[in-house]
């Protein structure tokens, strides 16, 4: 087992989680999107690294797909949204930044506790990194819950998705290609849908505070 391979893998996986935590820390929407791009790239590095090591062509293709979708397409879309948005800051999160970071730490601990139960089945250098993916999922979800800005919400959603993708790569070296393809495209489509919604809303209605709408309730 080459150390470079492991080193790159650990670095990239760490970058995925780190960028997730960073999104919690940063307030500027543009910065958040950059973090997301970083994360997409790191994710594709993980996939490619694994693919090269295990000679999985399917996984290589997946890595490329991830790079295109999560490293390029989605951040670009989000950037476009953010540019049109006059208020491009996550001004008032429901849980403030320091507290968010504390929560994130707690969530990471939790993911290690849970993750070890998963990795215990087949412990190896690679699978042992899987808790990072779970932590990314939880941090992403946390972001989704606590951030008010529409773009932040979308980013949270993608973080969850990236975390899952990371786990997929680490645990199983990628699920069958068709599934992975479907999954990635679905994410892309969801983002497109969300973007479309935001645009239509802005076009259609006076308010663009999509996430603050509370007209539908009991």
């Amino acid at each position: 087992m080459s150390t470079t391979y492991v080193g790159v893998l650990e670095l990239a996986a760490g970058a995925v989680l780190l960028s997730a935590v960073m999104t919690l820390w940063r307030r500027s929407v543009r910065a958040i999107v950059s973090m997301l791009r970083l994360q997409g790239v790191a994710l594709s590095v993980v996939a490619v690294d694994l693919a090269l090591h295990e000679h999985e062509h399917a996984l290589l293709a997946t890595g490329a797909l991830v790079l295109v979708v999560k490293g390029v397409a989605i951040p670009a879309l989000l950037r476009r949204i953010a540019q049109r948005d006059p208020r491009s800051r996550e001004s008032r999160p429901l849980v403030n930044v320091p507290a968010s970071l504390v929560f994130a730490a707690a969530l990471i601990v939790l993911s290690y506790v849970v993750g070890t139960r998963i990795t215990a089945l087949a412990p190896s250098v690679v699978t042992n990194l899987a808790p990072l993916g779970l932590a990314t999922v939880l941090v992403g979800y946390f972001m989704l819950v606590t951030r008010r800005h529409a773009v932040s919400k979308i980013v949270g959603l993608i973080l969850v998705d990236n975390g899952i993708a990371l786990m997929t790569f680490l645990l199983t070296s990628g699920v069958p290609l068709i599934v992975e393809l479907g999954a990635s495209l679905d994410v892309l489509l969801v983002v497109v849908v969300l973007q479309f919604l935001m645009v239509s809303m802005r076009h259609h209605s006076a308010t663009d505070r999509l996430t603050e709408m509370k007209a539908l309730h009991d």
């Binding site: 979800y141 959603l157 969850v160 997929t168 199983t172 699920v175 969300l194 209605s205 007209a215 539908l216």
Partner: peptide, 27 residues
């Protein structure tokens, strides 16, 4: 307005939920 709000909530909630189902499938 209502339709947009509903579909916004719908897509966010369902996407995040169904993502977890994907994680389950992967596991």
């Amino acid at each position: 307005d209502g339709a947009f709000e509903a579909s916004w909530k719908y897509v966010i909630l369902c996407s995040v939920g169904i993502a977890l189902a994907f994680l389950g499938t992967v596991l």
